[in-house]
Every structure is written in structure tokens, then in C-alpha cells.
Simulated assay, not measured.
Amino acid sequence: MTSRAPRPKAPLGRPLSAESDILAATQRLLVEGASFTALGVQQITAAAGVARSSFYIHFRDKADLLVRLGARLLTPTFDAASAWRPSDGLEALTETFERMLEIYRRHYAVRRALSEIAPYEAAVGDFWNREITQFTDWTLALLRTEQEEGRTSPDMDLPSATQVIVTGGEQAIVGHVTTRPVATDPVFAREMARIWWYGVYRRPADPTA
């Protein structure tokens, strides 16, 4: 059996694989203010410290790169949101929003790039739509269960409430993290939770109640 030489150790603080290097370098460039449209593969690989050919070993194109960066934002966000159930209560919902704000702050530059590219790049637009549809379907099913079991108002229009939660909530979070300091996150999370809790999940059957 042929012996295999040990893999070289990466310098401290640097990921070992070229794929991770490229992802990290692209996010760093975006955080520094670069436009994703203007970023070239050569600029990305130079910042990552890898050969240009390495890019195409790991990514089909720049759209594929952005989709993978986008998954680092949307997957943990959905995981955090879907881990909460109305039975967990208002305080747990506030904590959920705090975790989502933390994720969005860490990846806000990627979110900006998704908005920049999705309208004209089909692969990115399809990725965004799939992720939003997943959250939409989950929210609609959760609200339907709450309504059927009598825990929220029977006159709630479920598709409308779902749209407000998914589209409105995401836009509100983006607006917050891009315009207000991190110190305001707990207050914002509390207000978001109260709006959802009293406006949707525990909306009284009698609107005068």
C-alpha cells in the first residue's frame, strides 16, 4: 500500500481548503464594500491566496459562489426561526429574533449581494425564492395549526399574515442591521416578538379584547 504524505498544516487563522479560502475572501471583500458585480474571479482568488484555476475546481461560476455564501445566511436563519414554537412563548421568541439579528449582522454584506444579483441572475434568484418559499410554507402551516386548534383568531387571513411575517419581517431585519447599531438589537428583537406574538400568534378572537 502506498503511504500518503500528511496534508500541510494551514497557517493559524486560515482555513485549510481553497474552497473555504475563496468563500472567506469573498465575504471579506463584500464587508469591505466591494460590489459583487464588480468583483472578478482574479480579484477573489488573489485575496484568497489561491490559484485562479482553484476557483473553477470548487465553483461553477460567481453565481454558484454567491449561492453558497447565501446558504450561510439563510440556512441558520431558517433553523433558528423554525426551532421556535408558539408553545415556547414570547420570551423565547424574543431570543429567537436576537439570534436571527446576530446571523444577519454577520452576513449582512452577503444579503446585500443577493439583492444586487438575484434580479438578473437566474441561479441566485431561484436560490432566494426556494429559501423564502421554504420559510413561507413553514409559517403558513404553523399558523394554520394555531388557528385550527383555537389558539389564535379564527378570522385571521393566513396567506396575508404569512406574507407580513416572512416578507415584512425579513425586510425589517435588513433595515435594522443596516441602519442601527448592534446595541439596539435587544430592543428591536423584543418589539418584533411582541408584534408577532400579540398581532398573530395570540391575537384575541374578539378584536376589542
Rank of each mutant, 00 (worst) to 15 (best):
residue 142 L to S: 14
residue 199 G to W: 06
residue 52 R to T: 03
residue 102 E to T: 15
residue 94 T to V: 10
residue 7 R to N: 02
residue 189 A to R: 02
residue 167 T to K: 08
residue 138 W to N: 03
residue 139 T to V: 11
residue 189 A to I: 01
residue 102 E to Y: 06
residue 11 P to C: 11
residue 184 T to A: 10
residue 90 L to I: 13
residue 39 L to Y: 02
residue 196 W to E: 07
residue 184 T to F: 05
residue 51 A to C: 04
residue 24 A to C: 09
residue 14 R to Q: 15
residue 47 A to R: 09
residue 203 R to L: 07
residue 32 E to Y: 10
residue 161 A to N: 03
residue 14 R to S: 10
residue 166 V to T: 14
residue 93 L to H: 06
residue 26 T to N: 02
residue 163 Q to K: 05
residue 169 G to I: 00
residue 147 Q to E: 10
residue 85 R to Q: 14
residue 186 P to W: 00
residue 108 Y to E: 12
residue 194 R to N: 10
residue 97 F to Y: 15
residue 184 T to M: 11
residue 176 H to K: 12
residue 77 T to K: 03
residue 146 E to F: 12
residue 136 T to M: 08
residue 162 T to G: 03
residue 14 R to E: 15
residue 54 S to Y: 01
residue 52 R to F: 01
residue 150 G to C: 02
residue 57 I to P: 02
residue 128 W to K: 01
residue 183 A to S: 10
residue 1 M to R: 13
residue 131 E to H: 09
residue 133 T to S: 12
residue 118 A to I: 01
residue 181 P to Q: 01
residue 174 V to C: 05
residue 120 Y to Q: 14
residue 88 D to H: 12
residue 29 L to I: 09
residue 158 L to D: 04
residue 151 R to A: 13
residue 183 A to R: 12
residue 142 L to T: 13
residue 155 D to S: 10
residue 74 L to F: 13
residue 187 V to A: 05
residue 160 S to E: 11
residue 91 E to P: 04
residue 112 R to A: 14
residue 65 L to H: 06
residue 39 L to H: 01
residue 22 I to H: 01
residue 20 S to P: 02
residue 146 E to P: 04
residue 102 E to G: 11
residue 34 A to Y: 06
residue 144 R to A: 12
residue 199 G to C: 05
residue 118 A to M: 11
residue 85 R to C: 06
residue 109 A to W: 09
residue 73 L to T: 06
residue 106 R to P: 05
residue 68 R to A: 01
residue 191 E to N: 08
residue 84 W to S: 05
residue 196 W to N: 05
residue 80 A to G: 00
residue 112 R to T: 13
residue 203 R to Y: 05
